[in-house]
Write a protein that binds this DNA or RNA. Structure first.
Length: 862
RNA sequence: GGGAGCGUGGCGGAAUUGGCAUACGCAGUGGACUUAAAAUCCACCGCCGCGAGGCUUGAGGGUUCGAGUCCCUCCGCUCCUACCA
């Protein structure tokens, strides 16, 4: 017998699989389709442990599903546009293109060395012209559908990356997602995808996604941030305090508190604030607040309880419900980009308004009062404002009874209360307001002022305005002769910029913004189904058979960004396909891309994320060099369930190495070979004291375990508990170790062979090379074909059962004795036997109740 | 402030529907083999106790014949989000 030599085995089989096209898939195969997708890598450096974990999980699922009889689509590619390529190129005096494609080749080699069963013929690289061409095509389709907009807007500007960012790319601390620099607000003309058009559907369809983790759905729902309430119209007064024709609308979730509104607020950047204070004595103070907001750092903004600042504008509005004149203030806690940038302030019902009113000595009239509050007695039924200052130390935001609220007094108030509805109806009848919904979700800002990205296919013409590049002129190719190390940009490249207007033919200027890289990763899973289509981004019929992706696997860090954008793209493409065609001509039928989602945890070292900058990276290559790919893959699956973070510990990897070696020896031993080590020392140890009776007993046990473990591994793999699936295989290996203590002549040959086969088949998805070598070489079953082409073994549950079972006997829930009974013993008999076993403890007391739990325990209650 | 999740041996973790807590592995201890070491094999391995026995899933309470699992209160940790009107 040869020693287990992972390097020789792994390289040999990788070559064989490549030569025989073992992992190629045929799209029209008649077996049922199953699409396994792992988030494709960004080619920023070497493959790391996080990749190994992500792709090992995907590979197990793919190989398992193939053995279950599915035609599995399991592709890989690279998300290769983006800024790190530019930064690295400048640092290394190279070009983004060279750097990117060198890294891709390095990563490709590593992924191949890891033995993942990708169909490499379907590789998609987003910076390849024949991919980004279709990104531009989709952009034009979205434009036709009204999903593209160019407008001036306050945007997030990263001064370090020299580009704008989408809201989703600004971290909680107000930092750039990539370089962590504090982001600034700037007013700029930019391209947007109108994600808000789908706000409701993006929220609503989360209910469909039963195969997604609750956590991710919750995060998306929070991000979309739906609020139900009302728009309320206030009338603006002129400088003398008389009402004008001009109105200003606010959004509120609490129309029931409208009588408690004692002042009115504008965001400091609100254009109205500037207009009504221009040239007045209030102007200076208002400007000060505006500057305060502009200069606020991310850390300051982070604090919700930070001091609120405001200034009076000298102007007033009229409250529509009671015609009361309310002062207009500006304050830094009012956000320009949520609602209308204006707020009705109800200090008794909102903590922020309460703090502001206290600071600036504004009235705080109560309008919603709890029945057990001291104010209730004084105010129940009072319609006019009798008390304008609450005795409370904070606002009351819960439900209660409306007071001091005119004709609405006495109604129940609170969020979505009867009082709210009544006020909304009253306002609507008088055209002073209406029921309304607001979302936190903003449109997706996709412009990037960077070179290494997909060019936006548009032309600026001084006669025609902004004109889309015609479909037949696509692709707009990204020029290769831009030297980023010399500070060159697309905008400075005359050959790229100078074009004729596609509409009028006169000289015009090409758009020089490129698209956010997330546009590239929002549809790559569609291209995989038809990666070389020269006419369309994908074939609609093919896409419909493969979509939605059956199992998507990736990191939780994409819970909002990538997963929300991909959902938006899928919905957009579904609707874009309808243009000029019937329903049957849709580009794709479904609006949701990913049916099941598994978010894998991070790989850490000493509690910290592995990263190059921290210098705490464990390189997969080093581990492969010592133990081989299979051991590394099995280990990373064994350490923890896939959705949990895991702590890297190399000693555990030694354990898996021993486990594989032991199976290797056991398999030879099972086939009757004498196992020796590299120095020819005999390792097989037969226990010659064992008898035929022992052999029968151990044979039964091994047979039982084979059936039990086959069933267990199937259940565990299907719910992604790879760690317990491997533990079960270890148990089978332990039983085999006991069995092969029998001298060869006492063994059951058929059983030995079945045990060895079972080990190879069960390990095939996790340790593909090891299992293949076991199957083809050690077991000599090469003529039956690859282990990966075999059918997943089935088990007979009845054969997994023992003839007798041991039951725990409890007295009042505490285990006091054990009895062994026949599997099919009648309950009366079990009760009697159990009682007899604990008679001494019970001391002849009459049991109140005896509970028998089949196959497990008996509980005697006394 | 809001939301989600977690807490089990020295360590990673198991316990699928409320039914024998600590599977499987790592580390550790003792032994066999060896001149020796490595490898391998065998045995032990939650805590207290010499023992019989008792205790144990962050703490406390509850429901139940029975709770790691369900409910309540508290403590601790992690992640997300945040002046969203």
């Amino acid at each position: 017998m040869l020693q287990y030599d992972p390097h020789a085995i792994e390289e040999k089989w990788q070559q064989v699989w490549e030569d025989t096209g073992a992992n190629l898939m045929h799209i029209d195969d008649e077996r049922p389709p199953y699409y396994v997708l792992e988030m494709f890598p960004y080619p920023s450096g070497d493959v790391h442990m996080g990749h190994v974990r992500n792709y090992s999980i995907g590979d197990v699922i793919s190989r398992y599903k193939r053995m279950q009889g599915y035609n599995v689509l399991h592709p890989i590619g690279w998300d290769s546009f983006g800024m790190p390529a530019e930064n690295a190129a400048i640092k290394e005096n190279s070009s983004p293109h060279t750097w990117t494609y060198q890294n891709i080749e390095r990563q490709r080699a590593s992924l191949k060395r890891l033995g993942f069963s990708y169909d490499w013929s379907r590789t998609v690289i987003t910076s390849d012209v024949d991919y980004y061409h279709w990104g531009q095509w989709i952009f034009l389709k979205f434009w036709e559908l009204g999903l593209v907009e160019r407008r001036s807007s306050p945007v997030n500007w990263c001064p370090d990356c020299n580009t704008v960012l989408a809201n989703e790319q600004v971290l909680g601390e107000g930092d750039c997602w990539r370089c962590k620099t504090s982001v600034e607000k700037r007013e700029l003309e930019q391209w947007f995808f109108k994600t808000t058009n789908y706000a409701e559907e993006l929220l609503e369809d989360l209910n469909e996604l039963t195969g997604w983790p609750e956590r991710v759905k919750q995060m998306q729902a929070n991000w979309i941030g739906k609020s139900i309430g009302a728009d309320v119209v206030f009338t603006l007064c002129d400088e003398t305090g008389e009402p004008t024709d001009e109105t200003i609308t606010v959004f509120t979730t609490r129309p029931d508190t409208l009588f408690g509104c004692s002042f009115f607020l504008l965001a400091p950047e609100h254009p109205l604030a500037e207009r009504i204070t221009k040239g007045t004595s209030y102007e200076a103070e208002v400007l000060k607040i505006k500057q305060l907001v502009e200069s606020a750092t991310a850390i300051e903004r982070e604090k919700a309880d930070r001091e609120k600042n405001g200034a009076f504008t000298g102007c007033y509005v009229i409250n529509p419900v009671n015609n009361e004149k309310l002062p207009i203030w500006v304050s830094d806690y009012v956000l320009m980009d949520y609602g209308t940038g204006a707020v009705m302030a109800v200090p008794s019902g909102d903590q922020r308004d309460f703090e502001f009113a206290q600071k600036y000595a504004l009235p705080i009239p109560p309008v919603i009062v709890r029945k057990d509050d001291e104010l209730y007695e004084q105010l129940a039924g009072v319609t006019e404002c009798k008390i304008s200052q609450v005795p409370w130390s904070e606002a009351y935001v819960g439900p209660g009874i409306m007071v001091q609220s005119g004709e609405f007094t006495g109604l129940p108030g609170g969020k979505d209360s009867e009082g709210s509805t009544a006020v909304i109806n009253w306002l609507a009848e008088r055209a002073l307001g209406k029921a309304s919904v607001n979302y936190r979700l903003r449109d997706w800002l996709i412009s990037r002022q960077r070179y290494w990205g997909n060019p936006i296919p548009a032309v600026h013409c001084s006669f025609c305005g902004i004109v889309p590049v015609p479909y037949e002129d696509l692709p707009v190719e990204l020029p290769m002769n831009i030297d980023v190390t010399a500070g060159e940009t697309l905008a400075g490249n005359a050959a790229f910029c100078e074009v004729d207007c596609p509409a009028c033919g006169k000289p015009a200027r090409r758009e020089t913004d490129t698209m956010d890289t997330f546009t590239c990763s929002s549809w790559y899973f569609l291209r995989y189904t038809d990666p070389h289509n020269p006419e369309l981004p994908f074939n609609s019929k093919t896409v419909d058979t493969w979509l939605p992706v059956d199992q998507y696997i990736g990191g939780i860090e994409h819970a909002i960004l990538h997963l929300l954008y991909s959902r938006f793209f899928t919905k957009g493409l579904r609707d874009a396909g309808l243009l000029g065609g019937a329903d049957a001509n849709r580009l794709l039928q479904r609006g949701e891309p990913f049916k099941n989602l598994l978010t894998q945890g991070m790989v850490k070292l000493n509690g910290e994320t592995m990263s190059k900058s921290k210098g705490n990276v464990v390189a997969p290559e080093d581990m492969i060099a010592r133990y081989g790919t299979d051991a590394l893959r099995v280990y990373i699956l064994f350490m923890a369930p896939p959705d949990k973070d895991l702590e890297w510990n190399q000693e555990g990897l030694e354990g898996i190495w021993r486990f594989l070696n032991r199976i290797w020896r056991s398999a030879s031993d099972l086939l009757g070979e004498l196992v020796v080590d590299s120095e020819n020392n005999v390792l097989s140890i037969y226990d010659t004291s064992l008898t035929t009776a022992d052999a029968t007993e151990r044979g039964k046990e091994l047979n039982r375990d084979i059936h039990r473990v086959i069933g267990k591994v199937k259940d565990d793999v299907e719910r992604f508990n790879f760690n317990t699936a491997i533990a079960a295989i270890m148990e089978l290996a332990n039983t085999v170790s006991t069995y092969i203590k029998l001298p060869v002549e006492l063994r059951n040959k058929e059983l030995c062979l079945r045990a060895a086969e079972t080990l190879a088949l069960l390990l095939a998805p996790m340790a593909p090379h090891f299992a293949e070598e076991l199957w083809c070489t050690v077991l000599g079953k090469a003529e039956q074909g690859s282990v990966h082409k075999q059918t997943w073994p089935t088990h007979d549950p009845s054969q997994a059962l023992t003839e007798t079972v041991e039951l725990a006997v409890q007295v009042n829930g505490k285990v006091k004795a054990r009895i062994t009974v026949a599997l099919d013993a009648p309950e009366d008999e079990i009760k009697a036997e159990a009682y007899a076993a604990v008679a001494a403890i019970v001391e002849a007391a009459e049991p109140k109740k005896i509970i028998v739990v089949g196959g497990k325990l008996v509980n005697i209650v006394v």
